[in-house]
Computed example of a mutant assay.
Amino acid sequence: MKITNRNLHRDFAYFYVGLIIAFSFSGIILNHRQDWYPMNYTFESKKVNLELPKNEKEITKNFLIEATKHFDATYDSHRIRNGSLRVYFKDNGILDMKLSDTSGELEFKRKVPIIGHTMYLHKTTNKFWIWYSDIFGAAMLLIAITGILIPAGKNGFSKRGWKLALLGLIFPLLFLIIFP
């Protein structure tokens, strides 16, 4: 088989069509995550009591492991920000509470089928997946470049296509200039 722009474009597009759809779909959702964030849903929620030390420095990993062991959840990590404590548990639990309170909300979450999983692919920091995504990015460049080289004649890149490509490049540049 002769390697042509058309063949490269077609075969790479076929190979990556699933990832193109997943990344496009999850990218649109991530763009609107302030309004709607369907990666996880809460399947259980309960009020819990937790007596916190007055001194924020005493709220350590060891303290939280001991203080939360009766929550039926395994401590993973925590953060303190703006007078609030968030504790993450390995079994997809999250505890949120104010440092000044003795009660908080413990929620257990699950990934939303399909949507949550595509968003996970979009956001993951797994080293293998990052390399695969980089290869995917290079393949997208190949698909774009071979795609613009396929048409010939009056609708080809050298006659008409370069003008549309230039307009397509100007739009994001203007956005970056106007909304830095």
Rank of each mutant, 00 (worst) to 15 (best):
T4Y: 12
N7C: 05
L8P: 03
H9P: 03
A13F: 12
Y14T: 07
F15H: 03
F15S: 04
Y16E: 03
V17A: 13
A22T: 13
F25E: 10
I29E: 00
L30F: 14
R33V: 14
N40W: 02
N40V: 00
N40R: 02
Y41W: 04
E44P: 00
N49Y: 14
N49C: 06
E51C: 06
K54A: 13
E58I: 01
N62E: 14
L64R: 07
E66K: 11
T68G: 07
A73K: 03
Y75W: 06
H78L: 11
R79K: 13
I80V: 14
G83C: 10
L85S: 11
L85Q: 09
R86V: 13
Y88P: 06
K90Q: 15
K90R: 15
D91T: 12
G93R: 02
K98W: 01
L99P: 12
S103H: 11
E105L: 12
L106Y: 05
F108N: 07
F108H: 10
K109R: 15
K109D: 00
G116F: 04
T118A: 15
M119V: 05
L121I: 10
L121W: 14
K123N: 13
T125R: 12
F128P: 04
W131V: 09
W131R: 09
Y132P: 00
F136D: 00
G137I: 05
A138L: 15
A139H: 02
M140W: 02
M140H: 08
I143A: 06
I143W: 04
T146E: 00
I148R: 06
I150K: 00
A152H: 12
S158V: 08
L167V: 08
L169K: 04
P172F: 01
L173N: 03
L174E: 05
F175V: 15
F175N: 14
I177L: 13
I178R: 01
F179S: 09
